[in-house]
Write a protein that binds this DNA or RNA. Structure first.
Length: 500
RNA sequence: GAUUCCGUAGCUCAGCCGGUAGAGCACAUCCCUUUUAAGGAUGGGGCCCUGGGUUCGAAUCCCAGCGGGAUCACCA
C-alpha cells in the first residue's frame, strides 16, 4: 500500500500526538449535552441554556490563525462554528494544546469533543466559544471536502461510483444524502404504524426457501451443508404469509428483503425491499382503498402534503386515485378494444402498434407488453389498473364475471409499477391447475415460471379464507417520496462489482 | 447483454490538432489575528485505470481489458 503525501503527514501527526501523551483513539465516553441543530434553533432565545455546552463531532473546516482560530464542527444534526482562543483552551503557561495539538496535529475529519459557551460573532454567526477540547478519534485520510457559499457548491463529491462504494464518505460530506435515508426510515415507520393501528401482525418468514415462489423471477441459489440440499433466497414471501392466513391470523405483514437474480438498472437492485400484506375476508377492491389511504398517509407524514415533487412533476397522492381496467386503459391510449381478441389477433395488433414481441409470449404476456409499452409510461399521477389476464397471475382469484381475467390490480405512479395486489386464489384445485400451467410455460422456455409447491397446496386444501394480498415496493416508494432518480440513491450499499 | 460517454493530485476538473503534467480547494512552511466559499506569501504532491500497438516521442491516436454513468433490452 502506497500512501499519499497527505496520508503520510497524518500518520506523522498521529505519532506526535502519541509522543505528547495524547491517545488518538481514547476509549472513555464523552458526554454530550446538546446538538448543533438544537443550538442553532434555540440560541439566542434560550441563551441561558447554552452557557455550558458539550458537543462532539467531526472537524469540517479550519481557519487557523495566531492566538485565536475558527473551525466548523459537524455532528449528526448539522454544523456549527467553533471559536478556539489560545488562552482559554490553555489557561496555564503551557500552550502546547493550542499551538501544537490544535493548530498542527488536528486535521479536517478528526472527531473531537468540545465544551464551552455559545455566543454570536461580530459577523452574526452563532458560534461555540471553546474552553475545552478533546481528540476522540484521529482521521488518517483526507476527506473530499465540499465548499459552500450561499447556494453555490464548490468541488462537490459527486462521482457516483465513489459515492456508492464509500457511502460513509457520501454521508459525511453530502448531508442531504443522510436526509434521504432518514426519510426512508420515516416512510417505513409510517407504514408500519398505519398497519399496526389496524392490528395487523408483523411477522417474519424464511429467507432461505427450499422452493422459491410467489413471483416470477430467477432466484439466487445457495446450499445447506448439513441438510445436503439446495436452498434459494426468497424472491417473495407470499406463499408463507398465506400459510399464516390458513393458520388463522386475520392480517399479517412483513417488510421483506427479496432477492432476484435479474438485470440491474436504476429501478432494479438484486436485493430489494417489499412490504407484503395479507388480510382475511377482504378482496382486491378493499385493498385498493387501503393502498390509497396508506400511501396518502405516508405522503402527509413525510411532507405534510399529499403533493410531492418528483423530477419536474408534481404528483398528488390525494384520494381517490383514478381506476381503469387493463383493457380500458389500453383502449384509452390506443383506441382499440382488445378484450375479445385471440392470440393471433393480439399479435397482429401488437405489431401494428409497433410493440415488440417474442415467439414464446402467450396471450397474457402480449397484453402486458402492449400495456407496458403504450400505457404505463404515460400514467404519472397515482392510478390503479385492474383486472389482469389470468395467464400472468397464477396466484390470483378468477374474476367472477370477466372470463380470462383475475381480480388483480397494480398501482402505477410516475410511469412505474408501485405495487401489485389481488384477491388471493384460495381454491386449491384451481391453484394446482395454475401451477401446472406454469410448468407448461417453463417447458416452453420461460425460465421464470413458478415451481409447484405441494406444501402450499396442502395448506390451501385445509382451507384459506377469502383473502386480499398486497406487495408494495419500498425502494420505489422511497424513490418517489424523496425525488431520487435511481434506486441506488435510496439503498445505502447498492450492489456493485468488486473494486480492482 | 447492446449502444454511448467517462476514468489525470486527497476532491472537483482542464490539458486530448502527439513534444518536460496544470488550476482551484485540500496539504506543508512562514506572516497576520474575530474569519466568512479561500486573510496574505511561498512550497511540496501524479504508474495521467491496466495491457498491447502506431510513432524518434503517447495523458493525448488505435485495439483489447477493467471499473463506472446514461439510454435500451431483460426484470410482470
Amino acid at each position: 500500500m502506497t500512501l499519499s503525501e497527505q496520508e503520510i503527514i497524518r500518520r506523522e501527526s498521529l505519532n506526535q500526538l502519541i509522543e505528547l501523551g495524547i491517545n488518538p483513539f481514547p476509549s472513555e465516553t464523552f458526554e454530550v449535552n446538546t446538538t448543533t441543530s438544537e443550538i442553532l434553533e434555540k440560541f439566542p432565545a434560550d441563551e441561558s441554556l447554552f452557557q455550558r455546552v458539550s458537543i462532539a463531532g467531526r472537524i469540517m473546516s479550519r481557519r487557523i490563525m495566531g492566538a485565536a482560530s475558527f473551525a466548523e464542527l459537524q455532528d449528526s444534526t448539522g454544523r456549527i462554528q467553533l471559536y478556539v482562543k489560545r488562552d482559554d483552551v490553555c489557561p496555564e503557561d503551557d500552550k502546547t494544546l493550542y499551538n501544537t495539538v490544535f493548530k498542527k496535529l488536528l486535521d479536517i475529519g478528526d472527531i473531537i469533543g468540545v465544551k464551552g459557551f455559545v455566543f454570536i460573532t461580530k459577523m452574526g454567526e452563532i458560534t461555540i466559544h471553546v474552553q475545552e477540547i478533546k481528540l476522540l478519534s484521529k482521521s488518517l485520510r483526507p476527506l473530499p471536502i465540499v465548499k459552500e457559499k450561499e447556494d453555490q457548491v464548490f468541488d462537490a463529491f459527486t462521482d457516483p461510483e465513489q459515492r456508492y462504494r464509500q457511502r460513509y464518505l457520501d454521508l459525511v460530506v453530502n448531508p442531504e444524502i443522510k436526509n434521504i435515508f432518514i426519510m426512508r426510515t420515516r416512510l417505513i415507520n409510517s407504514m408500519r404504524n398505519f398497519l399496526n393501528v389496524k392490528s395487523y401482525l408483523e411477522v417474519e418468514t424464511p429467507i432461505l426457501q427450499p422452493l422459491y415462489g410467489g413471483a416470477t423471477a430467477r432466484p439466487f441459489k445457495t446450499f445447506h451443508n448439513t441438510l445436503d440440499m439446495v436452498l434459494y433466497l426468497r424472491i417473495a414471501n407470499e406463499l408463507y404469509l398465506k400459510r399464516l392466513i390458513v393458520g388463522g391470523y386475520d392480517g399479517v405483514y412483513e417488510f421483506s428483503k427479496d432477492f432476484r437474480n435479474e438485470g440491474m438498472s436504476r429501478f432494479h437492485n438484486p436485493e430489494f425491499t417489499q412490504m407484503e400484506l395479507y388480510v382475511a375476508y377482504k378482496d382486491y377492491e378493499w385493498m385498493m382503498n387501503l393502498v390509497e389511504e396508506m400511501v396518502e398517509r405516508i405522503a402527509l407524514d413525510l411532507h405534510g402534503s399529499t403533493q410531492v415533487l418528483v423530477g419536474e412533476r408534481l404528483i398528488d397522492f390525494r384520494r381517490p386515485w383514478k381506476r381503469y381496467t387493463m383493457f380500458g386503459i389500453i383502449q384509452q391510449f390506443t383506441g382499440l378494444d382488445i378484450s375479445n381478441m385471440d392470440e393471433s389477433e393480439l399479435r397482429k395488433t401488437a405489431s401494428r402498434l409497433h410493440v415488440a414481441l417474442t415467439p414464446e409470449m402467450a396471450k397474457g404476456k402480449i397484453i402486458d407488453a402492449i400495456f407496458g409499452e403504450l400505457c404505463e409510461p404515460n400514467l404519472i399521477q397515482p392510478t390503479f389498473i385492474t383486472d389482469y389476464p389470468i395467464e400472468m397471475s397464477p396466484l390470483a382469484k378468477k374474476h367472477p364475471t370477466k372470463p380470462g381475467l383475475v381480480e388483480r390490480f397494480e398501482a402505477i405512479i410516475n410511469g412505474k409499477e408501485l405495487c401489485n395486489a389481488f384477491s388471493e386464489l384460495n381454491d386449491p384445485i384451481d391453484q394446482r391447475q395454475r401451477f401446472e400451467a406454469q410448468l407448461e410455460l417453463g417447458k416452453r422456455g420461460d425460465d421464470e415460471s413458478m415451481a409447484l409447491d405441494e406444501d402450499f397446496l396442502r395448506a390451501l386444501e385445509y382451507g384459506m379464507p377469502p383473502t386480499a394480498g398486497l406487495g408494495i415496493g419500498i425502494d420505489r416508494l422511497t424513490m418517489i417520496m424523496t425525488n431520487s432518480p435511481s434506486i441506488q440513491d435510496v439503498i445505502f450499499f447498492p450492489q456493485m462489482r468488486p473494486e480492482k
